[in-house]
Structures are given as C-alpha cells and as structure tokens.
Simulated scan of single mutants.
Amino acid sequence: MTFRKLLTATAAILLISSAASAAQTPTRMNQYNDWGTYAYNDQSGKVCYILSTPKQMQPANVDHGDIFFLISQKPGQGIAYEPQVVMGYALKDGAKVEVDVDGKKYSMFSKQESAWMENAAQEPQLIAALRAGRSMKVSATSARGTNTSYTYSLSGVTAALNSIKDCK
C-alpha cells in the first residue's frame, strides 16, 4: 500500500469512526501480503482493524476514489470482526452492496460512502469464507447510478485476522 493510500485509509477510518473526534491517528502494525493491520485508541479502548484495497476496479473509465475493505475488532464496544466497505464516492440510497467470496454472496446495507452486513449474524460466515477463499468481489451502485465492482486478493487475510484476534 502506498504512503498516500495509507494516509487516505487513516483519514477514512477516522471519518467512519463513531469516535472520530476522540480517536488518535491509527498506527500501522504489520502487512500480510495484501492486507495491512492497524490500531488506534478511542474513548471505549483499543480498536484494531485489517484493511485492503482492490486489485481491479470496474468500470475502468470512472473515477472511483479510494476504496477500502476493512474488518474491525472493537473489544470496548463488544464488536468482533465487523466487515465494512468504504467507497470513494456516495452510494445510492437504499442500494445494497454485494460481497461475493468464491461464489458465496453476502448483502450489505449502505449509508453514504460505507456499507455493513445487512444481517450481522452472517458476519462469522463471511469471515470464515474470507479465511478459506481465494478472491472477493464487491459490487455497488453509486449515487449517480453507476454500477461498480471491485476485486480483492485474499492473500494474507487469515494472518491479518489472526494478528488482531487479541486486540485489547
């Protein structure tokens, strides 16, 4: 991940954090192939997350901005392995974001530039699929109506997830 993308990722995490005003700048902990690990402290304690950027973006002729897929551990809030997509643009109101891991599909609800699992009970299934999978595709619709898709490598996701398992 380039320094510019790291700074953008840091900014994105601070913006999406419910405690953005109290959050410190995330610290990069490690890199596991295509997945980086980061941590910061907020008023509820330590927050750890893994993050990756897409290998391919479609359509090729549009400005996608910076796109991230991340999975957070927030022990102080009782949140374990929460997947989230952060787009570089506003998503269409009410549109679902689809995550496809080797043919297994999961639905996310969107709000502004981000999306979370529609059914939180499926989060462990998505995490298990990521650990066992080869690639992930995320499909979304922008507020302008453009259908977009992003392909991610899952190389390093298991090691990255294992490294934040004991986030405290």
Rank of each mutant, 00 (worst) to 15 (best):
A121N: 09
D166Y: 14
I16H: 05
P75H: 08
Y150L: 10
V86F: 03
A95T: 05
R4M: 06
G76I: 11
L14I: 07
D93S: 14
M57R: 07
S135T: 13
Y150W: 01
V85T: 04
F109V: 09
A11V: 10
V99N: 03
L126Q: 09
V62P: 03
T146Q: 14
M87L: 12
Q43A: 03
K165S: 11
M57G: 01
K111H: 04
P124Q: 06
A20G: 15
F69Q: 08
Q56A: 07
S149F: 06
A121D: 08
R4L: 08
G36C: 00
T151M: 02
Q43K: 08
T37G: 01
R131H: 02
M1E: 01
D34W: 01
I127K: 03
K46E: 12
G145H: 12
L6V: 09
K137L: 06
L7N: 08
H64P: 13
A90F: 07
G88H: 15
A140G: 00
K111G: 01
A90W: 12
S72C: 11
A9K: 05
K105W: 07
K104W: 02
N30G: 02
Y152T: 00
A11R: 11
Y81K: 08
T146E: 07
S163Q: 14
Y32D: 00
W35P: 04
Q73K: 13
K111D: 02
L130Y: 04
V99D: 02
D166K: 13
L51D: 03
